[in-house]
Simulated scan of single mutants.
Amino acid sequence: MMNSINTNSGALIALQNLNSTNSELSTTQGRINTGKKVANAKDNGAIWSMSKMQSSSSSSLNSVKDSLQRGQSTIDVALAAGDTITDLLSKMKEKALAASDTSLNTASFNALKADFESLRDQITKAATNAKFNGVSLADGTTASLTFLANADGGGFTVASKTLSLVGIGLAAGSTFTDAATAKTMIATITTALTTATNKLSSLGTNSVGLDTHLTFVGKLQDSLEAGVGNLVDADLAKESAKLQSLQTKQQLGVQALSIANQTPQSILSLFK
């Protein structure tokens, strides 16, 4: 090996190795600081792009969950109105049955008739006021509602189940005038009660469907987030061990460079 005071090959090699160690150390420290092995496009362009797309899909699902939860609330309000309406229909049937008794005097009959009509009017109020966020599935003002089902804008459609008087088969002014018409009204109310419960059953099925899909969307979002973590998150235990190794390697590199820098001084001894 040639000895030269102009070119110190050993020092150049030591410096290259030290620079390489410092670069690795900087990368490892960055991973420990951010907790990510791919923090930006410079680290790994393909993985970074993939993680960003998946993160975007996961974030979009928040809007889907909000929409589905709004759908749940809208159906719950309609179901609450339906429960009230079926209770009112049961009471109306009771009043009509009592009024069909031919032994009643006029005052008692009129009292039962007034109670029946009051209950009838309450059905209209319950159906009309069954709104969530200004939207109702019970008053017949809308044919159906469509809520978000996925990040691509797909929909989950819920058909309206009209629970107004007309919707359950009762005329707006349904009443009875004597015992005979009161007896006829019993069958009409029974039919209306059957119609109302069938519509409520359908709404209940839709509600279960929304619950199931909401649960699925939550699991999907968790899976996407876990997948992104697998792509970009750093193994901190591994990085910690590597940090210790690189710090030791850095110290040795500094010493090696120091020794290499002293080599030209040995040439002086040749001239003594």
Rank of each mutant, 00 (worst) to 15 (best):
T212R: 04
I85W: 05
T28D: 08
S201A: 14
S207A: 12
P264H: 05
Q265P: 11
L243E: 09
A151H: 12
S103T: 15
A127L: 03
L119W: 02
N105Y: 05
I32G: 10
A138G: 04
Q16T: 07
S20D: 15
K242T: 09
L137R: 03
D222A: 14
S240G: 15
N261H: 06
I186G: 10
L257G: 05
A159E: 12
T7N: 14
L61T: 11
S57I: 06
T141I: 01
I259Q: 13
T194E: 09
T74K: 02
V228K: 09
Q72K: 12
T195D: 13
T197G: 02
A14F: 10
D43K: 06
Q250H: 11
K42D: 14
K183C: 05
S56R: 12
L200V: 03
L170F: 09
F216G: 14
A187T: 15
I123A: 04
D139W: 02
K93R: 13
L210H: 08
K242S: 02
S144V: 03
A107F: 10
A260F: 07
T142K: 07
G30W: 00
A159Y: 01
K183M: 12
G45D: 14
D115G: 05
R70H: 07
Q262E: 13
S20V: 08
N22E: 13
V254R: 01
G253Y: 12
T162I: 07
S58D: 08
T263P: 00
G35A: 09
T205G: 14
S4K: 14
S4Q: 13
A111C: 01
L268Q: 09
T205F: 06
N40H: 04
K199Y: 06
Q69H: 01
S223G: 06
S60H: 00
A234R: 09
Q262P: 08
